[in-house]
Design a binder for these strands. Sequence first.
DNA 1: GTGAAAGCGCTAACAT
DNA 2: ATGTTAGCGCTTTCAC
Lengths: 359, 359
Amino acid sequence: MSERRDRPRPAKPVTIKQVAERAGVGQATAARVLGEYGHASEATRERVAAAAQELGYVANHAARTLASGSSRTVGLVVGDVENPFFATAARGLADTLEQGGYTLLLANSDEDVGREEQAMRAFATRQLDGIVISPVTHTNRAPLSWAGPLVQIDRVVDDLSVDSVVVDNRAGAEAAVRHLAACGHRPIGILSEPAEISSTAERLEGYRAAIAGLGMAVDDRLVAVASPTQDSAYRVAREMLAGPGRPRAIFTASNFMTAGAFHAIRDLGLRVPDDVALAGFDDLDWTTLVDPPITVVAQPVIEVGRRAGELLLDRLRGDDGPPRQVVLPTELVVRSSCGAGGAQPSRRRSTVKVKTSPR
Amino acid sequence: MSERRDRPRPAKPVTIKQVAERAGVGQATAARVLGEYGHASEATRERVAAAAQELGYVANHAARTLASGSSRTVGLVVGDVENPFFATAARGLADTLEQGGYTLLLANSDEDVGREEQAMRAFATRQLDGIVISPVTHTNRAPLSWAGPLVQIDRVVDDLSVDSVVVDNRAGAEAAVRHLAACGHRPIGILSEPAEISSTAERLEGYRAAIAGLGMAVDDRLVAVASPTQDSAYRVAREMLAGPGRPRAIFTASNFMTAGAFHAIRDLGLRVPDDVALAGFDDLDWTTLVDPPITVVAQPVIEVGRRAGELLLDRLRGDDGPPRQVVLPTELVVRSSCGAGGAQPSRRRSTVKVKTSPR
DNA sequence: GTGAAAGCGCTAACAT
DNA sequence: ATGTTAGCGCTTTCAC
């Protein structure tokens, strides 16, 4: 087709050397203006720029990286980009890093330790300037294989003193459970993913703390654990709800758990909040679309990504202070799935915390 | 902390040369076994592997790229990873490419022509082996700036003969509208995004074709256009529903439109499907969580990414045949938002098509 | 099968 | 301010 004409012939790329010749300056000079480093008089800059323009010069990233040792790229390892939490965090991170001139290279760990290690190995090869990771478990030390700037998001590895940005999972979970209790529901159960993940473990802790604080005893039959998928959550929730001594309220510790439980409740013909009250973690769009809208613990997701980006940019600028642990506040968004609150959802915010622990 | 011990000192990376020395072979030989190309006797491979292991050799990607001209990386430009459609497609693409040993570099265009161009420029610099793009508009020719293997997904640029993977938007939309009509609802309106995007334009076409095919006249007041956000869709839907001659059924042409319309309908105190029937495009999880569950046109999203990956891998393997246009079928998933179907949702599938147009 | 040597395109150190 | 030059670590001829 005529299109053929449009597509530029895969001509051999123009090099700085050629631009230099054309501009009648030394290669180094051309490199300085094209690479935007060092000095150059206004006059030469223009000549070089013009020559580059005419020749259609395009920088060679590989050469730059090899020569300078920096790829101006940051790696991000998440469980799965399809998870809205990670997608949003990735967005916040990418936007922030972009301001510093960095690009983001993404990898999915599939929440699998083996794949996490594999991703770290692949990253190690690429001269990355930094890595942001959401560790698969609190025990796997794969992230440690990386010697450069590292920041953990959402979760952390035990006893690892590096920068991290997480939310106050414990307080968030506690607030949700207390709210459930305040609405008069009990017993209160929890549907959670395995506690291998630090954030999940904290949410479980929050649940236990709330129950204890309320003077109730933690009944293990009300602590249900499902795999991190909606299907698994659905099955476990059904089981929990069908059994004897079923909870009159459930705190779901992740978006998968919330969706699965909601589905199960509906299929069982139970009503929310009359038969079972529900409060979840993570404020996704759909929670306001369903009937009744669900009370949730909202996390500042975008902010998690942004802060991680800022922390990293600081390190890339040379900051070598002690590791910083950023704990972002969560917010209890009260809607009607617990029977409380009216039409106007209320929001209760926990406080911001930024700890700095000694290295 | 004691952690300090764990973190490897940022020692200078081991090079092939060092490995070669240690193994007592020439650098080229070591490179051949470490780079897995060329030949080497079983004996030497072992010695080199052992030496590399002992020294902790890690390949230098930049050097490889510079020397070979290939980065074993593919770029992907999407509107926004936070959009579940793109997140899933990206996943399918990444998984497929990984099998071929390629890594994915992601960029968001924010559905903005300027940013799309910017992303393409950034990619041009990186010695990518291929690019997959979801063009912002059907007219912007930014994707053309790329001379290497290119595959378009979800949407296409006018008169651009390159590989592409899209779904049969027209047939999908038509099926949804016909279904709405078959359930006895009319008039039938459409809530869509601007037709700048080829897939959206096709859905509009499908709507028009269905209306015409049903012997009805297309009433422009029933063709509402909103910006691609849930908020905008909400406002436009409210307006449409509040005005005179309001539609008794709405076909929403994207997930944003569906969510916005659903919200609007509920806030207006209207019931689905009695007051307004609803059928949407794109089968997201939440559409089954709401009441009533929404009838939608489902797209094989993961498949879009996978097929794009396969197409690209073929090209990377040297296939230089004529461009291939892959059109994936959609499926009408009948639930209860149109008043038809019972408890059991039914699925109707359009047919697969794979066109090959002359280059 | 293996080694020697020439770049790949750029940055950075050193002169000027 | 600008030119010269030496690598960065690897792939890739080209001999042996």
